[in-house]
């Protein structure tokens, strides 16, 4: 193909997306589109899977059976989200094994928020309320993204997320209404999770490199800063309602903008954690790698069993 011909099909491809047509796995797509999608979808899948670890930490210590079944169901949902997304990613021609390999070797990233520890039960409340809350804001626009399998996976994910956020908020509310110690625990969790949650929307628009391309391919519909603002505006009244204080002395309602002004984010911390120096980066990856390695004999045994069954079926048929 000549360079001009390629330009023409690329223009036609972009026009299809602009017309809100979906791109499906066997359709022609620019290599950059494929790579960008593999990167984003796998990063998202890894986040769902690694995201189970901080919460899994509290399943056996949940304070009641009600809390325990809810947390189990939530963590199981996150496993499901990871699986929907890995499947969507595989339709782009990368294998599950390669995807795991990229996670385990640190080549692929996952959301930095999961590199913070869950040190009290209130952290489970804060994660559901803030982290899932931020994830929902990031994810809802992706239900209309241009790549069909990704959009379909996101529709399922979004349907399941709202219970996650509500169960977290309920935990925070209950603690905030409880004893003095319980309320302190809730406030402490909010203090630790607030800023990392704001960082979940990514670098400021001025620093963000992919935005224009991502907008065109509908991997993004709003900018990082717009989404972050939406999160702040939505969450501050929720904190006030249960008597908790957002840990930001600069937070102030701006009547003119009909939005909250908020303080500066510590981007050094963000980049430190992205680069692997967060409090839990090592533990998270070690947990994934050892689960994968220790499970190897089970996976092999299952394949050996399947093969034996297959052979005995063919013998019987003969």
């Amino acid at each position: 193909m000549s360079e001009n011909q390629i330009k023409n099909i690329e223009a036609e491809f972009d026009a299809r997306i602009a017309r809100d047509e979906k791109i499906e796995p066997k359709d022609w797509m620019p290599e950059k589109y494929r790579q960008t999608h593999i990167r984003q979808i796998s990063q998202h899948a890894h986040s769902e899977i690694v995201g189970m670890l901080p919460e899994g930490n509290w399943i056996t210590r949940a304070p009641s059976l009600r809390r325990k079944v809810a947390l189990l169901a939530k963590v199981q949902d996150e496993a499901g989200h990871g699986l929907y997304l890995y499947s969507a990613c595989e339709t782009l021609g990368i294998s599950r094994d390669e995807l795991y390999e990229q996670l385990h070797t640190g080549k692929a990233k996952y959301s930095s928020i999961f590199n913070y520890p869950t040190i009290t039960w209130a952290d489970i409340g804060a994660i559901g309320w803030l982290v899932d809350g931020a994830a929902i804001i990031n994810q809802v626009p992706l239900c209309n993204t241009s790549y069909g399998p990704y959009a379909r996976a996101m529709i399922r994910v979004c349907k399941e997320e709202s219970f996650h956020q509500r169960q977290g908020y309920e935990i925070m509310m209950t603690l905030a209404e409880g004893t003095k110690e319980q309320k302190t625990m809730a406030q402490d969790a909010l203090n630790r999770w607030w800023w990392p949650s704001l960082m979940m929307f990514g670098p400021t628009d001025a620093e963000s490199v992919h935005t224009a391309q991502s907008m065109k391919w509908k991997l993004k519909r709003k900018t990082n800063d717009e989404l972050r603002q939406q999160f702040v505006d939505q969450t501050v009244p929720q904190a006030e309602l249960i008597g908790l204080t957002v840990p930001d002395p600069d937070l102030k309602w701006n009547d003119e903008r009909q939005s909250y002004d908020f303080g500066a984010i510590d981007w050094d911390e963000f980049w430190q954690v992205v680069k692997g120096h967060g409090p839990m980066n090592k533990q998270r990856i070690n947990a994934r790698v050892s689960a994968w390695e220790n499970g190897e004999w089970v996976r092999d045994a299952a394949m050996a069993y399947a093969k034996k069954q297959e052979e005995s079926r063919t013998k019987q048929a003969m």
Binding site: S87, R152, E160, Y305
Partner: peptide, 23 residues
């Protein structure tokens, strides 16, 4: 509904139950 990995058909059905029909 989607896809998944499994060693055999039996496991594929069981996993499909867990991955795609939790509600």
């Amino acid at each position: 509904f989607g896809s998944l990995h499994a060693a055999d058909a039996e496991m594929a059905l069981e996993n499909a139950r867990d991955v795609y029909t939790r509600r």
